[in-house]
Design a protein around this nucleic acid. Structure first.
Length: 769
RNA sequence: GAAUCUAUAGCUCAGUUGGUUAGAGCGCUUCAUUGACAUUGAAGAGGUCAGAGGUUCGAGUCCUCUUAGAUUCACCA
């Protein structure tokens, strides 16, 4: 044996495991029945994004590997299913940055071409993550690997979509959505970051029509939207304005007469108690607009510029430019009353960081109320146990006031929504396309149809935007019955609409009920392990979809793991330059050292500061195991030299044990039961720490030292404690334990061929005290 | 605005349902060690467990408040 452990050989060990079939469970002939007799232990890997190499956080898949290896050793049929996610907006955002380097942008391509280019880009990256996961020792069943853009997965989510449409759980509507004009897409509420912004409250005077020198002053944080105001709202109990019933105001700069409306939602104490109402650009005002049947005047286009609903001099300005122009002009004409400092929360795009523009836009929504209710019930009834417990509370809180989910994204990378529009009788469809000579054209079908032939529009199509009440058909064939000029919706599904269906889809759920044996055997899965930051994005959606589509929860336990931070406790990110590549660490110190460093002494769900010190300490521990094993083998050799007939065995003769033997075996029994119990309770930090202490202190420092002046009778106890320790440690540090085991196997009589598939230890029977 | 979490040795953190002298890693001090391992061993210094109050025979552990920090959720002008 080498003088110290050499992690360079870890990949060979991984190959031998994979080749032996240890990662691949066998599905019995009658899976449903077999499941009832013995339930498999199943984890679906949270699929990493296909667009990027793994980061340190992904190394925490180690937690899943620990559970998987533990259950495999317990003898449970065990499946850990790998896959990668297409990660819609994330990937497109990354790819657009690549395009920018070439001096191109998404506007240079029709959507089909752009889609194909992104697909190629993703394919070149996909194997990277896979090899990294192998390097870290994750015992995933690669024969079942999936990708979120696999055709069978697409077909499944399309089927679910159609079902939801037919049951009125999916609807189209023109509502206020969170829109990023830079990314060119809407977002769900979850994808909006609320940042505190130091700004101002501007007080404008709106003249009262027909009354000389009388004004109503409104206070606003968004002067620019005043060009789209269609009312001013006050509280009916506010005496300052009670005489203004049936009066109108003259909107300055625009010279439009707007009504005064009375609604109890208006806070009398805020500002002047009078609020400008812009139904097309503010969520609250949208509600008022609906309630009072106000005009909806959208003043910003999808590119963020002011459109022709504003006076000519303002057209084409971006919101911040428009703001300044409005402030200047109101000041000039003497209608700016005052400006106060004011700090408030503004929604920003989680992707590009720019302010979100709330605008009305036709989009696809999922009705959440009933779906959320069933998920809430499942969690309350512990059909799904959320661990650590504190996340259960925030889950229920979030579910409690959930809003309808905007599932359509105006990007190309993702599953294109399977709905078709008929242009023949739908002139108001807004179309963007690239012409044959490469220029961008945008316009309504009513105007375009005379200038371009349909085939050019179809082949150059970038986006279309159909009015919310446009009829649509769920297949091209259906649509064709209605007309000749057919275009498919260009919006794609929110990534989470796809990944929310990951558990049953990857296992082979079938819309027609002909489920695969895998689905019958492994679904519902056992544990879902992920970081808490996607509890709402992903975990909640999976529970919702699972219950809706299969009638069962997708997993029984949702285990939220820690967040990996750098040595200083800072969030890792590429831009900060403090991101570490887990594979680099594995090359330098061994995957085992990294894995151990990530779990030892970490409380459930708390942050992990990953430092070099910590990794080195665990590298030392791994080496300690190597050397303790080397020592045991060495003294066996020495006894053999003295006595060539010596039988090497780990069978313990209870009557021959001395005090030290009994003490170490007693501790061994304790560590066996505490490790099992800690693993059952997801207390990986405690389990690993106890094992560390037992092996290094109890076994090496105390017991081995004491055996140094004893005879060959120590061999069975030494072997028993060593082999049992290797088994207990194997889920955490699989490589060193397996490689030591293989060496031991060559030199002593060991029955089991691999540690990975060996049985979990049971306590040694000792004489009663 | 709502909720959650954290505050324990110089640093990074463990400490399950409350129970004897509060632990680990790294760092520090002294010593040992040339055949398991210097990626070692032994001994040691170092904490009024943020502060105040309460429950209890007993609290780092439960409750209340205060202070400091972090995070998440949230359509308020």
């Amino acid at each position: 044996m080498d003088k110290s452990y050499n992690p360079a050989k870890e990949p060979e060990i991984y190959q031998s495991w994979e080749k032996s079939g240890a990662f691949t469970p066998i599905v019995p002939p009658n899976p449903k029945k077999a499941r009832k007799e013995k339930e498999p232990f199943t984890i679906i890997l949270p699929p990493p994004n296909a667009n990027n190499p793994l980061h340190a956080g992904h190394a925490l898949y180690a937690v899943e590997d620990i559970m998987i290896r533990y259950h495999r050793m317990l003898g449970d049929p065990t499946l850990w299913l790998p896959g990668t996610d297409h990660a819609g907006i994330e990937t497109q955002f990354v790819y657009e940055k690549e395009l920018k380097k070439e001096g191109k942008s998404r506007f240079d391509y029709d959507r089909d071409t752009l889609f194909k280019k992104i697909f190629e880009f993703v394919n070149t990256n996909r194997d990277l993550a896979k090899n990294q996961m192998k390097r870290l020792g994750f015992s995933l069943d690669w024969t079942r690997e999936k990708f979120a853009m696999d055709e069978d997965h697409n077909q499944r989510i399309y089927a679910v979509f159609r079902k939801m449409v037919s049951e009125n759980l999916v609807y189209r509507d023109e509502k206020i959505v969170n829109y990023c004009t830079f990314c060119g897409t809407s977002f769900s509420n979850l994808e909006v970051l609320h940042k505190s912004v130091d700004s101002h409250l501007w007080y404008f005077k709106y003249p009262v029509v027909g009354e000389k020198d009388r004004y109503v002053t409104v206070a606003t944080t968004r002067p620019e939207t005043m060009l789209g105001d269609t009312a001013v709202a006050v509280n009916p109990k506010d005496k300052r304005y009670s005489d203004l019933k049936n009066k109108k105001l003259l909107l300055p700069l625009v010279n439009r007469e707007i009504p005064i409306i009375f609604d109890s939602s208006i806070d009398i104490k805020f500002g002047t108690g009078a609020v400008k109402v812009t139904p097309s650009h503010s969520p609250e005002d949208y509600d008022l607009g609906k309630k009072f049947n106000l005009k909806f005047i959208r003043i910003f286009d999808y590119d963020g510029k002011a459109n022709d609903n504003v006076p000519k001099k303002y057209q084409g300005l971006f919101p911040n430019q428009l703001r300044q122009a409005v402030i200047d002009d109101l000041t000039t004409i003497g209608l700016m009353e005052k400006i106060k400092d004011y700090s408030h929360e503004v929604g920003h795009c989680y992707r590009c960081g720019r302010p979100i523009e709330p605008i009305t836009s036709p989009q696809w929504f999922v009705k959440m109320k009933d779906l959320a209710a069933s998920a809430t019930k499942a969690v309350k009834d512990e059909k799904v146990t959320i661990f650590p417990k504190r996340f259960k509370k925030s889950f229920l809180l979030w579910m409690n006031d959930i809003r309808d989910w905007n599932i359509s994204r105006q990007i190309v990378w993702g599953q294109r929504i399977p709905a078709w529009y008929v242009l023949d009788n739908n002139p108001e469809v807004l179309i963007n396309f690239v012409t044959k000579d490469g220029s961008n054209v945008s316009g309504y079908w009513r105007d375009l149809q005379s200038q371009y032939d349909f085939s050019q529009i179809e082949s150059g199509l970038q986006t279309l935007n159909a009015p919310a009440d446009s009829p649509y058909y769920l297949s091209k064939e259906e649509a064709k019955k209605q007309g000749k000029l057919i275009l498919q919706e260009t919006d794609t599904f929110d990534t989470w609409f796809s990944s929310g269906q990951w558990p049953y889809s990857t296992l082979g759920w079938d819309p027609n009920g002909n489920h695969s044996p895998d689905f019958d055997y492994f679904y519902p899965t056992t544990v879902l392990d992920t970081m808490w930051d996607i509890l709402f994005f992903w975990v909640a959606r999976m529970i919702i979809f699972g219950l809706y589509v299969t009638g069962e929860v997708p997993f029984k336990v949702a285990h939220m793991h820690s967040r990996v931070l750098d040595a200083k406790g800072q969030k890792m990110s590429k831009s900060k330059g403090n991101a570490v590549n887990p594979v680099d660490i594995a090359q330098n110190y061994g995957a085992d050292a990294l894995r151990m460093a990530l779990v030892i002494g970490v409380a459930p769900g708390s942050d992990i500061a990953l430092s070099d010190d910590k990794i080195r300490a665990q590298r030392n521990f791994v080496n300690k195991i190597w050397n303790a094993s080397r020592f045991v083998l060495m003294i066996i050799e020495r006894f053999k030299e003295k006595n060539p007939d010596l039988k090497i065995s780990s069978d313990i003769d209870i009557s021959a044990l001395n005090k030290d033997d009994k003490s170490i075996l007693d501790n061994l029994n304790k560590i066996i039961s505490s490790t099992s119990s800690n693993l059952n309770k997801y207390r990986f930090g405690q389990a690993s720490e106890d094992l560390y202490h037992f092996f290094w202190h109890d076994f090496c420092d105390v017991y081995i030292e004491k055996t140094k002046d004893r005879g060959e009778e120590v061999i069975p106890v030494l072997l028993t404690v060593l082999i049992t320790s290797l088994k207990l440690l194997h889920p955490f540090i699989p490589f060193v334990t397996e490689s030591v085991y293989q060496i031991l196997r060559g030199q002593t009589k060991l029955v089991e061929s691999q540690l990975i598939t060996s049985t979990w230890p049971k306590s040694v029977s000792l004489p009663q005290k």
